[in-house]
């Protein structure tokens, strides 16, 4: 395969990664890493570097639209970034402490459970109308968005910010340690622990993952993991896909978003378990 064919075909893969990543708030890494390593036989270190680029591209590409459409909870996202960035930076220095096999197995189980929990509450779409959460009330993290699929404005209240902060710290830590799993933990943290509507959770996770990834991108650049011939088609394709995906999220039902999320979560969970148990 010549470099031209490589760049053109990888751009198409990246468009698909951008659409999927922006819909469920996970970033494009879920698709990009396996595609690069399995389909193209690219070195795993370079694939992970490309994944960081794809996460930032999904985040910025989709967030531009989501923020304008008020789908993103800007305040909650920026507030929770305290925990994700702190987690990401501390993760970069913990790499040697715990064997990554153990971490993969552990988080494989965690994600498997959160896929199950998300699936179980797929019909519950009723947001909260009151909140006793002192932190959420002080910083006013509550919000509302216009749901095109239901054709009405949906107001919601946020609870469980302490648990949310803890889970966000873990999400930042894991993404720095394992290179994946950042959005996969963020969406359940907001959806289940903090009771944000699933579409808002997805859009807000999308908004946040770019910052978490940027916090570790410097390390990847210095380690020589950002290869321009891979990064270029990934960045361009994912951006195009994410912009398209951002137009779709409003139109599909919350239940569909949850189900797509569950399927992808199961795949990531199995992938992590495999890395942990049978490397």
């Amino acid at each position: 395969m010549t470099p031209l064919v490589f760049v053109l075909s990888l751009t198409l893969v990246a468009v698909a990664a951008g659409v999927l990543g922006s819909l469920i708030g996970l970033g494009g890494g879920v698709v990009i890493v396996p595609a690069l390593t399995i389909l193209y036989g690219v070195n795993i270190r370079l694939a992970i570097g490309a994944s960081i680029v794809s996460v930032i591209a999904t985040s910025s590409g989709a967030a531009a639209a989501y923020v304008r459409e008020k789908m993103t909870n800007l305040r909650a996202g920026m507030f929770l970034e305290i925990a994700t960035t702190t987690g990401a930076v501390s993760g970069a220095y913990l790499t040697t402490l715990l064997p990554s096999r153990f971490l993969f197995a552990f988080f494989g189980i965690v994600l498997g459970y959160s896929a199950f929990a998300t699936f179980r509450k797929r019909h519950a779409a009723q947001p909260l109308s009151v909140s006793n959460d002192k932190i959420a009330n002080y910083f006013n993290l509550h919000g509302s968005y216009f749901d095109v699929a239901e054709n009405k404005e949906i107001s919601y209240k946020v609870v469980g910010t302490k648990l949310g902060l803890f889970l966000m710290y873990v999400a930042g830590l894991v993404s720095a340690l394992l290179g994946i799993g950042s959005g996969a933990l963020k969406v359940p943290a907001m959806d289940s622990a903090m009771h944000l509507p699933i579409k808002v959770s997805s859009a807000t996770s999308n908004f946040m993952i770019g910052v978490t990834a940027a916090a570790s991108a410097g390390v990847y650049f210095v380690r020589g993991q950002i290869d321009p011939i891979i990064a270029a088609p990934v960045a361009a394709g994912v951006l195009a896909g994410a912009m398209f995906g951002a137009k779709v999220l409003g139109r599909i039902t919350s239940k569909t978003v949850r189900l797509v999320f569950v399927v992808v979560l199961v795949v990531i969970s199995l992938e992590m378990l495999q890395k942990g148990l049978f490397p």
Binding site: I56, E81, A213, A217, P228
Partner: peptide
């Protein structure tokens, strides 16, 4: 390739400038 990396740097800087 250097110019591509500059473009990727701009992409990485975008969320930081956003903050």
């Amino acid at each position: 390739r250097g110019i591509v990396v500059i473009g990727v740097m701009i992409l990485i800087a975008t969320p930081i400038i956003r903050v």
